[in-house]
């Protein structure tokens, strides 16, 4: 019983996580847009400025969490949309794992980019 309920893929966990990430993203997405379009105009952004921002640990962590939350929220939303369209059986399994792999790759690549932006070297 308990295993069934704590399973990550269960519908209610995904439903709740979708809302929790939503609350986080509302703030961070607005912040991201304000900072990089209104405070700093996009055309004036340079690597030096980006590095300066990324070297602040708080900003770096926020951006990484932003990436993870956004990827989950977006990919889970896409999956839900496809399930609502009535996709089932093998295509659904394929889509599920396909989306999971895409998410992992996106997050990994995103963190790599963020790390390079701090001025760090790739090991």
């Amino acid at each position: 019983m308990a295993e069934h309920y704590s399973s990550f893929s269960s519908e209610d966990t995904r439903w709740l996580l979708q809302r929790v990430t939503a609350v986080f993203l509302v703030g961070v997405l607005a912040f991201h847009f304000m900072l990089l379009h209104f405070v700093h105009h996009a055309a004036e952004i340079t690597l030096a400025g980006t590095t300066a921002r990324m070297q602040q640990p708080g900003y770096f962590v926020t951006m990484v969490l932003f990436l993870i939350a956004a990827t989950f929220h977006g990919v889970n939303g896409v999956y839900n949309a496809l399930v609502n369209q009535g996709i089932s059986g093998t295509p659904r399994t394929v889509i599920k794992y396909g989306l999971t792999i895409a998410s992992v790759l996106l997050i990994a690549q995103g963190i790599r980019v963020a790390w390079v932006m701090t001025g760090g070297n790739l090991i």
């Binding site: 019983m1 308990a2 309920y5 704590s6 269960s10 209610d12 966990t13 439903w15 709740l16």
Partner: peptide, 13 residues
């Protein structure tokens, strides 16, 4: 009912 379901399941964690 959605909220009820989430509450119901959180107990099992």
């Amino acid at each position: 009912l959605k909220r009820e379901a989430v509450k119901n399941n959180l107990k099992f964690w």
